[in-house]
Amino acid sequence: MWGRDHLAKACVDAGHTVVVPQRFAAADPVAGALADLTAVCSSARLPADVSGSETPPGTALLIGAAAASGVRIAAFQPRPTFTHAHGREPNWRNLMIQYAADAHLDNGDAVLSCLAA
């Protein structure tokens, strides 16, 4: 899995322990989701890949749980998509994630810098 997941690979390569999601492969998806929630809430930081047209609901939920638990959040989005409300500054398409994240990362070097901090 890490060979295909560039964010997890960068974290492992930098010497960090990575906990991959359990809910997708668990025989009991509810137990897997609870394991994911527990892992996030007890982590020092949560790097989350928020690429795509919308952040997946499970990722958004884990970001919210991390924010409520005081976990530092780094949102990785190599190709940012902005909305441009008339007369306002550009925003990410998901404002709650924009405001919850302690860091907005757009490339591998930014990920490594964030992990070193």
Rank of each mutant, 00 (worst) to 15 (best):
T38A: 14
P47T: 03
G64F: 06
G52I: 03
T59Q: 04
V30M: 10
T59E: 05
V50P: 07
A39G: 13
A60C: 04
L46E: 10
D36W: 09
P57N: 01
V30A: 12
L37T: 14
L46R: 09
S42P: 07
G58Y: 07
A35C: 02
S42C: 14
D36R: 05
G32M: 09
R45E: 06
D36V: 12
P29M: 01
A44L: 11
A44G: 14
D49P: 00
V50L: 05
L62N: 08
V50T: 09
G64Y: 03
C41N: 12
I63S: 06
S43N: 04
V40R: 14
I63L: 07
R45A: 13
L46Y: 06
L61W: 13
S43Q: 02
S53N: 13
P47I: 11
A60D: 07
G58M: 04
R45N: 07
L34R: 15
G32Q: 04
S43H: 05
S51I: 00
C41F: 13
D28K: 00
T59F: 01
S53E: 15
G58E: 06
L46G: 08
L37A: 15
G52K: 12
G52D: 00
L37I: 13
S51D: 06
S43G: 11
R45I: 13
I63R: 06
A33L: 12
S42D: 14
T38Y: 05
I63Q: 00
G64H: 01
V50R: 01
P57S: 09
G64W: 01
E54V: 00
A35L: 08
G64D: 10
L61N: 05
T38N: 11
P29R: 07
A35P: 00
A33H: 02
A60S: 15
G64S: 03
V30G: 01
L34H: 08
A33W: 01
A26Q: 09
G52S: 11
C41T: 15
A39R: 15
P57K: 03
G58H: 02
T59S: 10
T38D: 12
P29G: 03
I63E: 00
V30Y: 08
A48I: 03
